[in-house]
Amino acid sequence: MSSTSSVVYLRDGATGQLVQAELHDSILQRHLDDHKNHWNPLIVAQGEQHGHWDWERKWSHFSAQLRYQSFAIECNGQSQGLMIVNTIKRCRIRQQANKHLVYVEYLEAAPWNRREIPKWNRFSGVGTVLMAAAIQLSIDEGNHGRIGLHSLPQADTFYRDKCGMTDLGPDVSYNPHPLRYFEMTEVQAAAFIQEGR
């Protein structure tokens, strides 16, 4: 698997300065290795909700299917965020029901980049850059920026308030837990891009 990369910017948590990073349009083996060797020990130690996410196993399953695409952010030679999206799902909001969107299956920032763990706050903006990548893919696919996702409880506020997505409430059909479903309309996507969230 190969990838192409583009330049994106993250904010250094210590200096407040913008730092250059690379957004790859595919997860590569080195990103999976970083997750296994550097992220996972910290995630397990924190006992986080998605500590069970095994990206190596996930990507070995998803990478064979055209409907899935992946992204990774690298900065300072290390993976800072990973995302897998599904391109054949459809919208639920009434005014765009049944239209195609890009559905975010999994999005994870490296543990040292998470707001809820301030002592490790190394780079901010990882989630925002990955959301922007999902919106851009949606635009490239002809879906006008429409995206959707089920959110882990600790990320609800980010998707609702920071990203401006519509909260459709807990989805009881989502296994194994009824996570809240969020969807972004074309207008919300344009606002997200315009405001540089």
Binding site: Q65, L66, T87, I88, K99, E141, G142, N143
Partner: peptide, 22 residues
């Protein structure tokens, strides 16, 4: 109906076909 161009629609069809076949 879907607001897609021909290339985007054919790509969607191929993804769906593979998903169903799998």
């Amino acid at each position: 109906k879907k607001g897609l161009n021909k290339t985007a629609l054919m790509r969607q069809a191929l993804r769906l076909y593979q998903a169903v076949d799998t």
